[in-house]
Write a protein that binds this DNA or RNA. Structure first.
Lengths: 138, 138
DNA sequence: AGAACCAATGCAACGGAAGTGCATTTATTG
DNA sequence: CAATAAATGCACTTCCGTTGCATTGGTTCT
């Protein structure tokens, strides 16, 4: 419990009750979350608060944003070694078309791509879609 | 002109005036288009018509949809050899953060990725972001 | 402790984009 | 020309992200 407080403080985020709860919630499950997911988990709290909490978390390197192609932004806790504050941590994401969950495959980095002359890449997003391990039954 | 009609007919899409115009418009510029772009180019036409035209085009393998991470869906004409009807043509896309345009890099296919056990990939989306050749001045 | 201050939260509302139902027009076929 | 089907236009809804402003709650300073 105190650990979460410290984690937040280390990232210069004041550990309010709400923030601790949200952090805890995200830490328990290993998947990514849409704002709506968090909303459904914390019906007492206001959408705006949750929205701004995620935003604050993101700005301070606690979570990173994921565009998995579903049209709704997902968020995931950054791993310990995640350096998405300084530069993009270009791991890839997997979206399961069965359970609709998106996971970070932090071990799998996006391979380097040779672009045509004149193109300068600064960021990359790779999302694989299919069936996740839970749903494939393996 | 007649060529476009034939192209549409070959794809089982009835070549109405509107559709020919939209096809022509997309064929002239080599970039990708959001619904809003088309809307601005055809102020006389209704949004729904344009929306459904693009949808029809997509269902019949005339255009393919692109999720470039901007939050708005883009469309691009399929190339001659594009087989996105049968299976995904997994070329990558480049989004320029300067001019805000997204282009298809049809020559650049998404490299194969080894996934952890249990994950079955059926589709992939790779978007690189940065500065395009036009904007980098090269 | 009380006052002053700032950050966090809640409420209301806006705006963009995707999508749908239904009426109307246009084209196609018999 | 009539009957039918497809295409277009209009109105409206929903979803998500976002912002402005009032209110609450916690910190700090005297």
């Amino acid at each position: 419990m105190k650990e979460i407080e410290k984690t937040l403080e280390n990232k210069n985020v004041r550990p309010t009750a709400m923030r601790i709860l949200i952090y805890k919630y995200m830490a328990e499950k290993k998947i990514t979350f849409a704002l709506t997911d968090i909303e459904n988990a914390f019906i007492k709290a206001d959408r705006t608060t949750l929205y701004r909490t995620l935003k604050t978390f993101e700005e301070n390197g606690i979570v990173h944003q994921i565009d998995d192609g579903t049209g709704t932004t997902k968020y995931a806790l950054c791993e310990l070694g995640c350096n998405c504050e300084i530069e993009q941590d270009l791991h890839l994401h997997f979206h399961c078309s069965n359970c609709n969950e998106t996971v970070c495959l932090t071990e799998h980095k996006i391979p380097h791509i040779n672009l045509p002359d004149g193109y300068i890449a600064e960021d990359a997003n790779l999302v694989l879609k299919g069936i996740c391990e839970k749903c494939s039954g393996q």
